[in-house]
Design a protein around this nucleic acid. Structure first.
Length: 115
DNA sequence: ATGCTGACTATGT
DNA sequence: TACATAGCCAGCA
């Protein structure tokens, strides 16, 4: 499968994350068949156009924190507001308690075949 | 071709 | 819990 196809797989996984839940980059990578390549998920999301309908804001890093883009600290705020609107809570350290809000996909909806 | 960067993660101290 | 390091690999200069 081509690299471009990998992006589509990533988006397909992100689409499945329900409102009020979050998934980590590594989790998305694994479900998209890119296991261990979380960075590529970040790259794929970075390539999304502004105003996309893909719920990219539901993807956070393994610490439950929002990853800043381009080293811009304020770049995390819009994402945080959207999540709070959906009912996701942050602690005093700006972290989401993953044990409470992490998306747990049910087995049965399988990932695309790995290559 | 070569080297650097990055919306990451696991591991060690 | 927090910081440092190493591994990772597709883009890009």
């Amino acid at each position: 499968m081509s690299p471009a196809g990998d992006y589509e797989r990533v988006y397909a996984v992100v689409w499945r994350i329900p409102r009020g839940r979050v998934a980590t980059y590594g989790q998305v990578a694994a479900l998209a068949g890119l296991g261990g390549q979380a960075r590529r998920v970040g790259y794929a999301l970075h390539a999304l156009p502004d105003g996309t309908a893909v719920p990219w804001h539901r993807v956070v890093n393994a610490q439950g924190r929002i990853s800043a883009r381009g080293g811009e600290p304020g770049s995390v705020l819009p994402q945080r507001f959207r999540l709070e609107e959906e009912g996701v809570e942050f602690d005093e350290q700006d972290r989401i308690p993953l044990e409470r809000f992490r998306w747990r996909p049910r087995r049965g909806v399988r990932r695309t075949d790995p290559e």
